[in-house]
Amino acid sequence: MKKLTLSLVSIMAMSGLAYAGGDIAPVEEPVVVPVAVDNSAFYVGLGFGRTILHDDQSAEEFTSSQVMLQAGYQYNQYIALEGRASFGFNTDYDPGNTGNPSSDAADDISYWGIYVKPMYPVTEKFDIYALLGYGGVQLGNLESGDAYESGFQWGLGAQYEVMENVLIFADYVSLYDDTGFDYRAQFEDVDSNAWTLGVSYRF
């Protein structure tokens, strides 16, 4: 009789455990919330290149080596605001068909610009971009004084992150393309552009 009683108690206990097990809530997988990546940053840069100012009618041309300083703010991976200032040296002069003496060359070509910079990330480290803005170009220390013009500027370029926060870039910027250049060529088509290779650092 005792064995029968113990068996019944054991069966009831096991049934109770099985029933209690039915009340255990199923384990839910944790929800992963994506973290937004902050791509905003201030950046500065230094570039070297060549700037050309050319008269289409007379074929007169000034070519200057350049040091370019760059500073900007990147709002996200698609847009930035950038300012540039460039200073020329070792200017070469081709008089074209003007007959002007080589001594009429400018000492330098300098320019500045403020640009909206739309960007497209091709890969995680490689971007292509455009520059759209306003700026000025100056032929300095001509015999008759500096010659200066300003207006719309645009450019195209690419940049690559070689290490964390350090990027190399190369771009082309159209600095001026209009009729006349101050007193120098008042009724002729003149264009100026710059090619730059440089490095920038994001803070």
Rank of each mutant, 00 (worst) to 15 (best):
Y111F: 12
A170W: 09
Y129R: 08
W112N: 15
I109P: 11
Q138E: 07
W195Q: 05
H54W: 00
N76L: 06
E28D: 13
A106C: 08
L81M: 12
R84A: 09
A18T: 13
D189K: 00
V162M: 11
V33Y: 10
A194T: 14
V162K: 01
V37Q: 14
S10G: 06
F126N: 04
E124N: 12
S10Q: 09
V37S: 12
T123Q: 06
L156E: 02
S7P: 00
V190F: 00
M12C: 12
P95T: 04
V190N: 00
E164P: 05
N97T: 14
F42N: 07
V166W: 14
I168R: 00
S192C: 02
K117L: 10
Y75A: 13
A106W: 01
V32R: 05
F169D: 08
D94N: 15
E161Y: 10
T63A: 15
H54S: 14
M14Q: 06
V44I: 15
Y19V: 12
K117V: 11
L175K: 08
K3P: 01
Y78Q: 06
S200W: 01
P101L: 14
S110N: 12
M12D: 08
N165M: 04
G155H: 00
S102P: 07
A170P: 00
V9C: 10
V44W: 13
V33T: 14
L175W: 07
Q186A: 14
F62T: 13
R184H: 02
S7Y: 11
P26D: 08
R50G: 12
D171N: 15
V199K: 07
F126S: 02
Y134G: 04
L131T: 05
Y19A: 15
A105W: 00
I79E: 01
S144M: 06
E143N: 10
A194S: 12
A158N: 07
I11P: 01
I79A: 03
P118N: 04
N97E: 12
E161A: 11
N76P: 08
K125G: 01
L131Y: 04
G145Y: 00
Q70C: 10
A170L: 13
P30Q: 06
W112E: 14
F48D: 05
I109Y: 02
S103K: 12
E164I: 01
A25M: 05
D189M: 01
M163S: 03
K125F: 04
S86E: 11
S150C: 08
R84F: 09
A59C: 10
T91C: 09
W154L: 09
I114S: 05
Y73T: 06
A18E: 14
D171I: 10
A71M: 07
E149S: 10
A59P: 01
L53K: 09
V27Y: 10
A170C: 08
P118D: 08
S174N: 14
E60Y: 03
Q74W: 10
G113V: 09
G113L: 06
Y134M: 05
V173C: 02
K2E: 15
V199S: 13
E143Q: 09
K2T: 14
M163L: 05
I109G: 08
A105Q: 04
M68P: 02
G45T: 02
L6Q: 08
D92R: 15
G198A: 11
M1Q: 03
K125Y: 03
F126G: 02
Q74Y: 15
N193G: 09
L81G: 14
S174P: 00
